[in-house]
């Protein structure tokens, strides 16, 4: 489904992340593990096409997104990637439903009200559809962010530290919801997290080495 080969990304003289090889199949659910500062976010942004790696190829589906122009990557990202950022970043000026509508529009899709309603129903926030983000709890906002991530039926769903502010019970629920929604959308899931509680909840594991400088090859494993 995706294939990272010979990835290295530098900020100036510092190598932020280095990945010789990482392959994933459609429908996989990956944990991208590693200590803080190991480059998880950077790698996630590379997968999302938000950051272009200094070297290496990022083939997602049939597309080498590292070779696309910036505007082509923007278009590609809107249609193919669903991102759940750590801070969620719902648009505060818009209510829940409008946040999903915005995601449809920015991807260049027509607004599909029935699909949006079904999604809000599925993540359990349909009764909050007219609320604004400031009126939601963190858990509710996260469900909205998950719905937004899959509203365009992406091939890749990326979540950055989704369990950072959750208790044990909600960690399992959040991961379950991400997995179910990714499967519903037919997408591959990658969850970047340093949270040990997530380990047992995702079948595939990719660990970045702790040091971000000239590290040995990252280890790939399946639990």
């Amino acid at each position: 489904m995706f294939e990272l080969v010979g990835i290295r990304h530098r900020y100036g003289a510092i190598t932020a992340v280095e990945v010789p090889e990482w392959r994933a199949a459609t429908g996989d659910a990956w944990l991208l593990a590693g200590q803080s500062g190991s480059g998880k976010s950077t790698l996630l942004h590379i997968l999302a096409g938000l950051t272009k790696p200094t070297v290496g190829s990022v083939i997602i589906g049939d597309t080498d997104i590292a070779a696309l122009s910036e505007s082509a990557r923007d278009r590609w990202r809107g249609r193919n990637v669903g991102l759940v950022p750590q801070r969620l970043h719902l648009v505060g000026a818009l209510d829940v439903r409008d946040n999903l509508r915005l995601a449809r529009s920015l991807a260049g899709h027509p607004v599909d009200e029935a699909h949006i309603s079904a999604l809000l129903e599925a993540v359990g926030v349909i009764e909050l559809a007219r609320r604004f983000p400031s009126q939601l709890s963190h858990g509710q906002a996260q469900r909205v962010a998950i719905a937004r991530a899959v509203v365009n039926r992406p091939v890749l769903v990326l979540a950055d530290e989704p369990t950072a502010n959750l208790d044990d019970f909600h960690v399992a629920r959040a991961l379950e919801m991400l997995r179910v929604q990714a499967i519903e959308a037919g997408a591959t899931l990658v969850v970047a997290s340093h949270d040990a509680r997530v380990r047992s909840l995702l079948p595939n594991l990719f660990t970045l080495p702790a040091s971000n400088v000239a590290a040995p090859a990252a280890s790939v494993g399946v639990q």
């Binding site: 938000l50 910036e70 505007s71 809107g78 970043h89 648009v91 995601a103 920015l106 991807a107 260049g108």
Partner: peptide
């Protein structure tokens, strides 16, 4: 200053620089 997060997420959702 506060809007830049909104703008960033809009870019992440597929908006171009121009948009």
């Amino acid at each position: 200053d506060e809007r830049r997060y909104d703008l960033a997420i809009m870019r992440a959702l597929g908006a171009s620089r121009g948009q």
